[in-house]
Amino acid sequence: MDLITIAFYFFAALVLGFGGVVVLSKNIMHTAFALLFTFFGVAGLYVLLYADFLAITQIMIYIGGILVLIIFGVMLTTRITGVDVKSGKIGKFQLGGAIVFTSLMAITLVVVFSQTNWYQAEAPAPDSTAELIGVSLLTNYLLAFEVASVLLLVAIVGAAFIARKKHS
């Protein structure tokens, strides 16, 4: 086993283990902090896939942005001191249905993914992907880039408008 293999299994175990904690934990604060390690493991997988820029983006935006936003959401929508911090369970019947449905989905996906004869064309390892991404964002994907910036502006204005205090 070389170092890459060990690193892959480490990050895969990090992602799936803490992903399991995210969906199974009863305490919603534990869930939010398990999500941190899941995102970190995904960033490690990006590094192993030669996506250095994406790995940094993942850490900065997901861990530094979205996760902080989610923790704010948890703290603003649950009474921390009361019992309400538990995230609430559903009935036994629905829980069984959810387990059956998702295990069928997981088995199907894993079988299909491992049986398919994928088209393989391994790319040579680039020095750095940041320059390539920057060039293609400003040439081939310029329109999508501009639309995404407008979308972010609309989202931030809309979020501030929706979340403000109502004066009646």
Partner: peptide, 22 residues
């Protein structure tokens, strides 16, 4: 396969939880 399992975990989180943040 890692991504398929992560997808299944996320799907389970969506269909089995009541709390909207979950």
């Amino acid at each position: 396969i890692v991504s398929a399992l992560l997808f299944a975990l996320g799907l389970y989180g969506i269909v089995s939880r009541k709390h909207a943040v979950m």
